[in-house]
């Protein structure tokens, strides 16, 4: 299945997804959406790694992708636990309610 996709295009796609993830984190007010957008960003970097790995035909890219998956899983689990706690304490997931510490 030889296909000559230029790596550049893939990296641009990864960059675009990355930036969309960033936009998601900044724009959305609800913590869940923030976590989702962070997942998108991690996915984008996973894609970049796999693309780089396939460009050098080395398995390192996919190994790195696996570790990214592991990290994403761990991070999401703790993130959701935190979301539960926040919801339990503040009855809402709006990030602007968590502003006590400032100055």
């Amino acid at each position: 299945m030889k296909s000559s996709i230029s790596i550049e295009m893939v990296m641009l796609l990864a960059g675009l997804l990355f930036v969309l993830g960033i936009a998601g984190v900044i724009i959305r007010k609800n913590i869940i959406f923030m976590l989702l957008s962070v997942e998108v960003m991690l996915n984008a970097s996973g894609l970049a790694f796999v693309a780089a790995g396939s460009r050098w035909a080395q398995p390192d890219g996919q190994v790195m992708f696996i570790f990214i998956l592991a990290m994403a899983a761990a991070e999401v689990s703790i993130g959701l636990a935190l979301i539960l706690q926040i919801y339990h304490q503040h009855k809402s997931l709006d990030i602007d309610k968590l502003k006590e510490m400032k100055g």
């Binding site: 030889k2 000559s4 996709i5 790596i7 550049e8 460009r55 996919q62």
Partner: peptide, 15 residues
């Protein structure tokens, strides 16, 4: 930054 790198396209082997 990515565009000016104009990396050549390689024939991809599957891993």
């Amino acid at each position: 930054l990515i565009a000016i790198a104009h990396a050549a396209s390689y024939n991809l082997q599957t891993v």
